[in-house]
Amino acid sequence: MIVMSIAGVDPSGGAGVFADLKTFQAIGVYGTGVVTALTAQNPYKFFSTMSVDESYIEEQIDSVMDSYEVEFIKTGMLYSPEIIKLVSKKIKEYNLKAVIDPVMVATSGGDLTKEDLANAMNRYLLPQCILTTPNISEAEKLTDFKINNEEDAIKASKKIKCDNIITGGHLDGINTIHIDNEVTTVKQELIETDNLHGTGCNLSSAIVAYLAKNNDLKTSILKSLDYVYEGIKNGNYGTLISKL
């Protein structure tokens, strides 16, 4: 079972491709990683971003696909509309099943992207994916709709252009899952901690790993929510071996 992450690099290892590879390994699949951008950041401060040229991103994807049979991928930080268009093209070319983490802002508060990516994601990327995993802020950007409560999150989930989970870290732990025009909510206990860096990366990569292990989409989401919860509670995704 071989999967792929297409995302940026966080040198502190808590988010981006490095975090995705740790999650893939913890759940028991082999992870490959395509780098879209370099960042200088840590869990508490964001410094800068340097994008990778689109042609080199394409070559990275092609080099992996030349040797491995990959079915499921996830995307994280894509930095620019041009990179979004490229990744969308490669998803279609290789018939990949993609989980999109619509990363726009770092947990530490830094703007990771060249410009607002919501329009490009809606136009090119979301129609090509099987799931997107926005947090409240990202869902608001994708839908141009303000989310203040559970009812708003349900309405927003119906506006997003593909199946989705709107994560509930900023909504009293209420996760809103929209699959095949059916909405369910899953409430998790909120944990008082500073260990939240990269939680979105870990959720989307866990979903991909569970999908690769022949779980259906909803089961993969539920298992991944538990995985991330345990990671937050224990403070270390890298040593978390899932038994789900």
Rank of each mutant, 00 (worst) to 15 (best):
D10E: 07
S67Y: 11
H178T: 07
I165M: 03
I221D: 00
N234M: 12
F47H: 12
A26D: 12
N181Q: 14
A98I: 04
K85E: 10
T143W: 00
E59C: 11
Y227R: 04
I160E: 00
H178W: 03
V3H: 00
E189Y: 06
D62M: 07
Y210F: 14
T39S: 14
I100T: 02
Q128E: 10
K233Y: 05
G168C: 13
C201Q: 09
D116E: 08
S80Q: 07
K97V: 13
A212M: 04
N175E: 03
P127A: 14
N119Q: 15
N175P: 08
G169P: 03
M77R: 01
A98G: 05
I165Y: 04
A118T: 00
S204R: 11
K90Y: 06
S242H: 15
N95E: 10
A15W: 00
K187R: 12
K92S: 11
S204N: 03
I147S: 01
E192P: 03
L117Q: 02
I100N: 00
G14F: 02
Y229L: 13
N95M: 15
G33A: 10
K161Q: 04
L142W: 01
D66C: 04
I179V: 05
T167N: 11
G14L: 04
E182L: 13
K85F: 06
T32V: 12
K223T: 12
K74C: 02
F24D: 01
N148Y: 15
F18M: 09
S12H: 13
T39R: 01
A212C: 15
G76R: 01
V228D: 00
L96Y: 08
H178Y: 05
